[in-house]
């Protein structure tokens, strides 16, 4: 194969890969405007599924609950994960470091069903022996979500922190700044992009979780994925397409804004 032929083949493969990634999203968006309930039939453009979505109180309540959980989770996980990330990037060797690294890496790959059942049984045992938590609901979902989100935030913060130029911090310390002042005024602002992407990652992971939440939630605390799951199991539900389109729109908007900021920064620099 000539060099040119190889390049064309490679680009073809990559284009096919991206098409594979995006086809389902396109289908969701397109069919959210389909007047017909059937996927195989095009019933003309319509926005009726959006109206139906906004009058479906079950979905709206679950969405609100999930947003609240996702925001509290993201904040908690960013706090814990930033500490953990700094420990990994900065603290060198200490007794128990190997286990700590394992506790950060394992949640990234651990199957959801294992995390879900083990946390549920832990909550049940804790209630039996120390009387807390009372039953299961928002707090148990939050504890579960913070636990796995922390690991993701820690990895994001760690990779940023180990790439930072330490000489600025050292300069501040040499000039008499106390360690805490140097951390707040120098390190933290430099870590800000990692904190922001860590927060967003934790927010998304929480909003996306079906399996773990199903194990550790109680009656009356059905999150959005739990409601979606019970609906799509029953059959075709076009208002879910409308919901998906809104979500994809929000994500695309945020991604577009982030890219725009990045491009502006790189052209300025």
């Amino acid at each position: 194969m000539s060099r040119r032929g190889g390049k064309v083949a490679l680009l073809g493969l990559v284009t096919a890969g991206f098409a594979f990634l995006y086809l389902p999203l396109v289908v969701l968006v397109l069919f959210s405007f389909n007047g017909s309930k059937l996927v195989s039939v095009w019933g003309g453009w319509s926005t009726k599924w959006y109206l139906e979505l906004f009058s479906n109180e079950q979905i709206l309540n679950a969405a609100w609950l999930s947003l609240k959980i996702a925001m509290i989770n993201a904040t908690g996980a960013t706090l814990l994960g930033t500490m953990a990330g700094l420990v990994l990037a900065r603290f060198g060797r200490f007794g128990g470091r190997a286990l700590f690294t394992g506790l950060i890496a394992a949640p990234l790959v651990m199957p959801d069903v294992i995390i879900g059942i083990s946390l549920l049984l832990t909550f049940v045992s804790m209630e039996q022996f120390i009387g807390w938590p009372h039953g299961r609901g928002i707090d148990t979902i939050l504890i579960a979500h913070i636990t796995f989100s922390t690991a993701y935030v820690a990895i994001v913060v760690q990779s940023r922190a180990s790439g930072l130029d330490r000489s600025i911090e050292e300069a501040a310390l040499d000039l008499g700044a106390r360690p805490i002042t140097a951390f707040l005024l120098i390190t933290l602002p430099m870590l800000a992009p990692a904190l922001a992407s860590g927060w967003l990652l934790a927010f998304t992971l929480s909003l996306d979780d079906l399996v773990i939440a199903s194990f550790v939630s109680g009656p009356g605390s059905s999150t959005l994925p739990m409601v979606i799951f019970s609906k799509v199991r029953l059959g075709v539900t076009p208002e879910i397409n409308a919901l998906a389109t809104l979500l994809i729109g929000a994500v695309a908007l945020a991604a577009g804004a982030a890219t725009w900021i990045q491009i502006r920064r790189s052209t300025k620099a």
Binding site: P24, L25, D208, I228, V232, I240, L247
Partner: peptide, 10 residues
């Protein structure tokens, strides 16, 4: 970043 569950549904 957009929902895993909804993409599987798609």
């Amino acid at each position: 970043w957009s929902s895993f569950l909804l993409r599987v549904y798609a």
